[in-house]
């Protein structure tokens, strides 16, 4: 039962990091935590009390449900892909702006806007 609380804690911690941090890399890390908590949630769903790994062996009659675990394999792949795309974007942002702080990027965009308005 305690792993549900753990999942909720991780979820909220990750979510908080995504919202509160201005650093884009940290945001990606927070997003990773957030997604991982869901893996734990699913894996907990599949657990049957006293159940064994779902492999045919003699003398074992109670098995854990393997389906949520298999689903999580797919979700892990999705999570890895998301992190990869996120980090790739951060690298491109760093090349284009020279910073990975949300605040700096915003300022540079605003400065560009002011310049454009001046021209018109």
């Amino acid at each position: 039962m305690y792993n549900y609380f753990l999942a909720v804690f991780l979820m909220m911690a990750g979510f908080y990091v995504v919202i509160a941090q201005g650093n884009l890399v940290k945001k990606v890390i927070g997003l990773g935590m957030f997604q991982t908590s869901v893996f734990i949630l699913y894996i907990s769903i599949g657990k049957v009390n006293g159940g064994q790994a779902p492999i045919l062996t003699e003398g074992v009659t109670s098995y854990s449900n393997p389906l949520p675990h298999v689903l999580m394999l797919t979700a892990i792949v999705v999570g890895v892909a998301t992190t990869a795309v996120g980090l790739a974007l951060v690298i491109r942002i760093h090349e284009a702006y020279g910073s990975v702080e949300e605040h700096d990027i915003q300022q540079r965009d605003n400065a560009e806007d002011a310049l454009l308005e001046g021209e018109l």
Partner: peptide, 16 residues
């Protein structure tokens, strides 16, 4: 270059 930042924002919100 703003497209990068826009894509990143979308990535964060979309993944959530």
């Amino acid at each position: 270059r703003r497209s990068l930042n826009a894509a990143f924002q979308y990535l964060i919100m979309g993944s959530i």
